[in-house]
Design a protein around this nucleic acid. Structure first.
Lengths: 144, 144
DNA sequence: ATACCTGCAAATGTTTTGCGACTAA
DNA sequence: TTAGTCGCAAAACATTTGCAGGTAT
């Protein structure tokens, strides 16, 4: 059972890249936040701890993390890429509230199984999927 | 049973907007293409028939069609908004091939029903949803 | 007549790239 | 030493906005 830093280092070695302080620092902060983060949001947090780390480095680093399998890309269709780390989290779908913008994570194993079957019926090899249900969350439906 | 042009006109009247030749022309062409279209792709087609219709008009018009319920927004996560018309089409999910970029439309009523239940379990009022399965289509898995 | 619409150019906002200096291996 | 990396500025890209002239009602 390897931790995230080992996974990053392994990926970096395999690709002949460099293990840098910036990459380690960004990973540490990224893992410490338990919610989706846009590059902009992450950079704001990173800058507080280390003002020398630039905006572009965060972009390039998140792409690297994504390639290393350390994070998922989350896309709510607003033109902003968000990342979520996946360690300690199962795969999950999203219930996105169209009023307040908050979301809930949820999984339904039966849905997962049916997706597998749907793919098979189409002679399609599934790699990953995204299910987003847009609607109104319990809080927003109460306070009118 | 109203056709798409009636729906557009009704929406325009209700909002106090204008029924213009550009809007009618763009709708006609949009409906004639049986696949998703980005604004750029649609504008290229529109321009062939009518070189006077500008890029921005297509953008604004597609947003209007979307508000009028004449089309769905499709988002494959590549930063480009695509539209598909929905008349003559049921709601469907997408099987997107990560190799060739083509997609297949598919529906699984059981999945739809389970999504409703998942939402209910979270006291969430579902309005719409997006399910995309990314993987490798039958053609791409054959030709290595 | 009066909003609304159009098309151009310019602006916006996110993400990417070029580049000289720097650094891990 | 030498590729890869950094941070800055500038570019690229899709999309939106401002505006002056035009048009549907």
């Amino acid at each position: 059972m390897k931790n995230e830093f080992d996974i990053l280092e392994k990926h970096i070695r395999e690709k002949g890249l460099r293990y840098t302080p910036q990459r380690e620092e960004i990973l540490k902060i990224f893992l410490s936040v338990e919610r989706h983060l846009s590059v902009d949001e992450l950079h704001k947090i990173v800058k507080k701890k280390n003002p020398n780390i630039g905006y572009v480095t965060v972009y390039r680093t998140m792409k690297l993390f994504s390639e290393a399998g350390l994070c998922n890309v989350v896309d709510f269709g607003d033109g902003i890429i968000r990342y979520e780390h996946q360690y300690g989290h199962e795969h999950h779908d999203h219930l996105v509230c169209v009023k307040c913008g908050n979301y809930t994570e949820a999984v339904k194993p039966k849905i997962e199984a049916l997706q597998e079957r749907l793919a098979k019926e189409n002679r399609f090899i599934p790699l990953r999927h995204k299910l987003q249900i847009f609607g109104i969350c319990s809080k927003c439906s109460v306070h009118k």
